[in-house]
Design a protein around this nucleic acid. Structure first.
Lengths: 232, 232
DNA sequence: CATTCCACTTGATAAATATCAAGTGGCAAT
DNA sequence: ATTGCCACTTGATATTTATCAAGTGGAATG
């Protein structure tokens, strides 16, 4: 890695508190790579050779079984993926592909495992990250088991709305096909779900959404901090 | 905690490799408690006061939203629950109740967090446990998104069959109501799913199940190690 | 400008799943 | 034994969701 890139890596939360020596061991064989969109990065079942950090762009985690495929999560900057597989030195459970031109930091997984052994501050950061990832999946799982498709969409819109400033408008961060899969529904049903939300003040124009009746939408969505709150 | 109980705690995988000093700090305020079945242990949204370890019996993790309730996971010995909430000092995402008379080890969460800070071997064990829990939820989530109800049941039967020796019979570890909720279906549909599996050699009698045509059941279930394999 | 492509939408239908309402059968208490 | 209870099953039906088959419209291409 070029020394010019080092400060950028150091600024990533996961690597902020580690000792200098550990940091050196991590960046030694690590490198940045920029990928065009729709490029496959890893395939489920493969060995966990690297830990990936999305620095710019966006990465989709997806999985297949039988003949079906589903989006498991979207990773935006600065997020990691397949951390658990790296730590356990186990096969990836999910595949990953870019959904935008993306700048990705790749760190050999042996270096990560060695650093975790050595550096208390780093292992504390790893624990925090892992616990956060765990809770994020639990929330997704709750959402899928406890809500209908329309409710999942409504809550997702409220979340994006909140993330984007809460000024009555939002833009969908991914194409609708991907959003549908992420929310666990067929693309056709996402269209219909948007129609169902029309009476609740949801106006869709391409990737732009206007929320004209937050009150009504919230009444329908019944947001729940133990499912929707990303910060806990 | 009585000193007679200490060896039993030391034998738990999570606590095996830690230093003696850390172990003392962990067991200092920890205690065993035995609960009858169907006792509520924690409620989602509550503060993470303790880390729980199921030593004997069985605990159901469940969650509610709107007016619905679903079983998220079953914890059998020796398993922990709400580790992530303890480490982040955050609210529980799930409730827990015994589903059998159960012996539970309870450790104050501050002691866990302090021990993680101090003890490398313990933090390594925590990381392993967390990563395993994460991957278990991801697998559950994949199962729910990629499989039909009948497929989920078929694969679950194959798993229990395997766990229990693979001699053509198995016994359902929980009542059918709970199993249905765990698999993400209504109790009535579990009954029907068992009927659907009858032509594939699945014979149910109460909680006893006979698998008379493994080949056929596997063809239907299409088990996938990246979903069904607990050991990776 | 016309064409093609692709994402998305809409309609019709099918499949999966849930709900409601009776059952059935085993088991424990009296 | 009788009773009541409870878990589970079964049937009928409703709801939700998926699938298949045309559309539509916008953006890029030539």
């Amino acid at each position: 890695m070029r020394s010019a890139d080092l400060p950028e890596v150091r600024a990533i939360h996961l690597f902020q508190s580690m000792e200098e020596e550990t940091f050196d061991s991590i960046v030694k064989a690590a490198y940045f790579q920029t990928f065009p969109d729709h490029v496959d990065l890893i395939e489920e079942g493969g060995p966990a050779d690297f830990l990936y950090v999305v620095v710019e762009g966006c990465v989709e985690l997806y999985a297949k079984a039988n003949g079906r495929e589903t989006t498991m999560a979207m990773v935006s900057p600065v997020g990691t993926f397949i951390l658990a597989a790296v730590l356990k030195d186990a096969a990836y459970l999910m595949s990953a592909r870019t959904c935008q031109r993306s700048r990705i930091l790749m760190i050999p997984s042996e270096d990560i495992r060695a650093a975790v052994e050595k550096d208390k501050a780093f292992s504390a950061a790893i624990i925090w990250e892992l616990a956060s990832c765990y809770r994020a999946v639990v929330k997704e799982h709750k959402s899928l088991k406890l809500r209908t498709a329309v409710e999942r969409l409504a809550n997702r819109l409220l979340r994006y709305h909140n993330d984007q400033g809460g000024n009555g408008t939002l833009s969908l961060p991914y194409d609708k096909r991907t959003l549908a899969s992420l929310l666990g529904m067929a693309p056709e049903n996402l269209s219909r779900a948007f129609n169902t939300l029309k009476p609740y003040g949801v106006a869709v124009d391409g990737s732009k959404v206007r929320l004209d009746d937050l009150q009504a939408l919230q009444t329908l969505a019944k947001p729940n901090s133990l499912i929707d709150d990303r910060s806990m």
